[in-house]
Design a binder for these strands. Structure first.
Lengths: 118, 118
DNA sequence: TTAACTGTTTGACAAGTATCAAACAATTGA
DNA sequence: TCAATTGTTTGATACTTGTCAAACAGTTAA
């Protein structure tokens, strides 16, 4: 079963600065970029490829959740994490996109038609 | 005369995380929002309306400059600060816009940090 | 030259944070 | 029931950071 989420703030209480503090870390920023599709991702430490202890990774997941960026679902003894993409896009328009897009080559960036130049 | 800028990094060396760390502070975020027009602004502490010591404000200006967000110009005994808007928009499309646009209703904002001048 | 002005730099300090390691809790499988 | 699995929590530590206060440096005015 997928049930008791870990506590996360209401989006109405989330301030822009909270979001920025949460992503102002290389590891957490990379996590957000991976989660950008808005789908749930399982979070076994191994698959992320970060060279940090599992407790450190857990600390970062907590920072993202408490910063208002993600939700955590528990399913058996595994957990899943999901970016609150819809809520974030509504309250902070363009922010997640900017975080994901930044640094990519211009050709890889979506244009106004949502289509990539080939 | 307007001349010796303080040292600022080349935009090619600026990482997204540096930018995010620089704006992940209430005072610096507000400064960036004010500077968002890309024009030079004089920086006498009084006009910003923050309730911090002048040396603290100077520290924040330095953080923005070293983070790659701003340039500082010296003119006589006054200084001016300017957001590197064009460069930032090119390298991090939509980011500054998102920071300025994001969140609170315009009415709720002018001083959402509760800080005042001393 | 001397004093006032504008802002930076340095020093000190409290608070926050990224990290590892070990202990812990819940679940699943044998 | 017992052991393995998955991830969190707690404790310790080193590092970073936001802040004030005081000293400093360059410029302008008297």
């Amino acid at each position: 079963m997928t049930s008791p989420e870990f506590p996360a703030p209401e989006m109405s209480e989330v301030q822009l600065v909270d979001i920025l503090r949460a992503v102002a870390d290389p590891i957490r920023l990379e996590i957000v970029r991976v989660l950008a599709d808005g789908e749930p991702h399982s979070k076994p430490g191994d698959e992320w490829g970060f060279d940090v202890h599992k407790s450190t990774l857990s600390h970062h997941f907590k920072a993202l959740r408490e910063g208002g960026l993600t939700l955590t679902f528990v399913s058996g003894r595994t957990h899943a994490i999901q970016l609150r993409r819809r809520e974030l896009d509504e309250k902070f328009p363009g922010l997640i996109d900017a975080l994901v897009t930044a640094g990519q080559s211009p050709a890889a960036r979506p244009n106004s038609f949502g289509v990539r130049i080939r």
